[in-house]
Amino acid sequence: MIINNLKLIREKKKISQSELAALLESSRQTINGIEKNKYNPSLQLALKIAYYLNTPLEDIFQWQ
């Protein structure tokens, strides 16, 4: 199971779900699903999230 700190990191950087979704060329619903652990992002999307949040991938997503 993958757990994530996306919501915590996103809020700390003062970025809304909609703003992050626009940067990622994704939907706000996708970001919401990832944050609620209802959806696991593809590797490509996970890497883009890490890039746009300027945060190491392993700080956002962790195996448990």
Rank of each mutant, 00 (worst) to 15 (best):
M1C: 13
M1V: 09
M1G: 05
I2D: 04
I3P: 02
I3W: 06
N4E: 02
N4R: 01
N4H: 03
N4V: 08
N5P: 00
L6V: 04
L6F: 00
L6Q: 03
L6K: 01
K7I: 07
K7E: 10
K7N: 06
K7A: 12
K7M: 08
L8T: 15
L8I: 14
L8Y: 11
L8S: 15
I9Q: 04
I9H: 06
R10L: 09
R10Y: 08
E11I: 12
K12D: 09
K13T: 06
K13E: 06
K13W: 08
K13M: 15
K13D: 02
K14N: 14
K14V: 05
I15H: 03
I15V: 11
I15C: 06
S16Q: 05
Q17A: 07
Q17N: 03
S18M: 12
S18P: 05
S18R: 14
E19T: 12
L20K: 00
L20I: 04
L20P: 00
L20Q: 00
L20N: 02
A21V: 04
A21Q: 02
A21N: 02
A21M: 03
A22F: 12
L23R: 10
L23H: 10
L23I: 10
L24W: 01
L24R: 01
L24M: 08
L24V: 15
E25D: 14
E25S: 13
E25L: 10
E25C: 15
E25R: 14
E25Q: 15
S26A: 13
S26R: 12
S26F: 08
R28V: 15
R28K: 13
R28N: 08
R28S: 13
R28W: 15
Q29A: 14
Q29I: 10
Q29D: 14
Q29T: 12
T30K: 10
T30M: 14
T30V: 15
T30Q: 10
I31A: 02
N32I: 14
N32G: 08
G33S: 15
G33E: 15
I34Y: 02
K36M: 14
N37M: 07
N37Y: 06
N37P: 02
K38H: 12
K38Q: 14
Y39V: 14
Y39S: 08
Y39P: 02
Y39R: 11
N40E: 14
N40R: 14
P41S: 01
S42R: 05
S42L: 04
S42Y: 05
S42E: 05
L43K: 10
L43N: 04
Q44K: 13
Q44Y: 10
Q44W: 10
Q44A: 14
A46M: 10
A46N: 01
L47E: 11
K48S: 07
K48D: 07
I49W: 02
A50Y: 04
A50L: 04
Y51W: 11
L53A: 00
L53K: 00
N54L: 07
T55Y: 06
T55G: 04
P56D: 09
P56E: 07
P56Y: 06
L57N: 00
E58H: 13
E58V: 09
E58F: 11
D59M: 11
D59P: 02
D59H: 11
I60E: 00
I60F: 04
I60G: 00
F61K: 01
Q62L: 08
Q62H: 07
W63M: 05
W63E: 02
Q64N: 13
Q64F: 07
Q64E: 14
Q64G: 14
